[in-house]
Design a protein around this nucleic acid. Sequence first.
DNA 1: CGATACGTCCTTTTT
DNA 2: GGACGTATCG
Length: 740
Amino acid sequence: MNYTEGLNDMQKKAVLHENGPALVIAGAGSGKTRVLTRRIAYLIEERNVDPNRVLAITFTNKAAKEMKERIASLVDFDINYMWVGTFHSISVRILRRFIQKLGYQRNFLIFDTDDQKIVIKECILDLGLDKTNYNPNAIRSHISNLKNSRISPEEYIKDNHTLYRERMIGEIYKLYDEKLKKSNSLDFDDLLLKALELIENHEDVADYYKNKFEHILVDEYQDTNRVQYLLVKNLGSKKEGKSNVFVVGDEDQSIYGWRGADINNILDFEKDFPNAQVIKLERNYRSTKNILDAANYVIENNENRIGKNLWTEDDKGSLIQLYEGMDESQEADYIVERVYNERTVRDTPYNDIAILVRTRAQTRAIEDKLKLKGMPYKIVGGQEFYSRKEIKDILGYIRLIQNPHENYSFKRVINLPRRGIGKKTLETLEKKAEEKGRSLFEQAEISVDLGISQKAKDSFGEFTSFIRKYQNISEEKEMSLDKLVLEVYENSGYKEYLDKDKSTVEGKARIENIEEFVSAVADFEENKEESNLEEFLAYISLLTDIDKTAEKDEAITIMTAHAAKGLEFELVFIAGMEENLFPILRDEEEELEEERRLFYVALTRAKKRIYLSYATSRRIFGKTMDRSVSRFIDEIPENLFDQREIKKNIKQNKLTEKTASRGFYKEKEFFKGYTGINKKDNKDFKNTESEEDFKPGDKIAHKQWGKGTVVQVKGSEITVAFNDIGTKVMIMPYAPIKKI
DNA sequence: CGATACGTCCTTTTT
DNA sequence: GGACGTATCG
């Protein structure tokens, strides 16, 4: 096969790059994934590189999975054992093999953000600090930043010995690290840090991996932090010959500075890797000219960039739509109405539509409106699923089975369901365990000399032997993982605990989540030839919602602009285009450039059309605040906006004087007689998807709102008077209603 | 010990 | 407007 078929000159150059370092500056939509996969295929097939000697690093697990699949389809070799993964997952792989050299056991656990917070709270308490002055969340991110910059607790304390508060944060950091180590656990940052430590300080480990990896390819290089950079640098450095480090990135899409990502890694690549070849991919294959123009104009306001200009041969395409609502609810109405219009009039499938927001909190208003209309959507974001309480509870059991001496999991589940172990008993146990140097589990297992009630002792006995039983089963590998999880769920009493409120909507959802979790376990097992508990736990710890997103049902995607990185949609809505929301600024100007890059990322996700919107007032923390339009709107030239729509909104008094005076409209008489948005666009729409015809007087049932009576049917809109919640208007093909 | 009621803090963005 | 912690009572 010809691996450069259908590629442009620059792409070809990148794919065929010989040895030595290379930096590919790949603008949005310039086909970088294609370049990466083709290059790997080319290395394997044409240059006879053993797939096991290739290391490919991606930003998400999902990207890794997709990349692997694409490479597999291009080559004749078995690439199952090829290392394709995120920095975190490859670090775990290194650590599983060598972490004993650092004094940890191989079956270490990974602490996520929630787990970290629990430990930090404990540290604040242990140090006797006033908790009103030390916010666990702020300290958690402080510690994370320090770790990402490779500053140790000792160093930090030393550097800040004159500053009380900083010193105390250093002390918390120190104690936190000790506690983690004691629990044989690592946080996300540790994964990278410890892997780096192994490679830097243990020659045999370094030799092993440097030897193993002949080629290192890194995607999204602009979002690497210092530790990741050092990992690449170290793994790529060869005793002799050139380092074959091939990185792909776009400085204009660097959006993770707050997480320690250092845009200088990409800006300084040529300095760090002398004689690097630099290849720029500037031709965009994704968006229309208007969209690209808007994005280019916006990003040109940034100083800190290598500089490039994306171009396309595509048509101008549609103009950008801008809408002003008086509050977030009206903004959401607009979005939903436009989505509906796209779906019905233009036949755009829901899958091609994304609604992007700056913060998670914004999703609620939009979600509510979509629910109201019965339109299908999915919210992508964060680690939501695996951080749900019920999932973390079950995981607590599983983690305890994996490592009974991990005190945090013990504390989490010892009284779930209630086993009569209250605060007092637990305190006694902790004290004794501390004194004897035992884990809580060990101490509970013995439970002598505790001076607690016989009932509590029995509870401890029952609980510990329950965990022991499944620990044996797990070690003997007598049971499949999903069966194990299910049994633990059913036999621990946790099931009964949840069943108690299965009559409520929330209670039901919790049970469904557990069921989904069990099937996720089964899925995991199916896809691995050899699966064990520790691998599974690591897998989930590193998994995010973004990775989980399958292109299942037809649904609108709602997500943050961050989560949208690397994706593309026909149609993109960007909501909340307001000062101090997009851009969101705490203090510094530096952040403005990153916000702008984020907006650039958001704009360049769109292939065909963009809808921007904002509100002049918005509820924040439950308080209504006046808002003003984002400065980014001003950075897009006027002629790229659809003036007709703006005009129309002014007619409907939706655009305020302030916005109007910014120059979005000129001609006063332009679109006379253009009335309303809904009726005109939708009047020819026939309700073809509905299986039943509704008429006034029909009794119906709604999935969420219960029973009601149809009041009016007008086109595809149906008005229903519900027995409990009053009258609602819905759109028929999508409303979850049926006749009764 | 456990259930319930109220007060306080917060939210950028996520591996 | 919600998650989480503390206060209070059964």
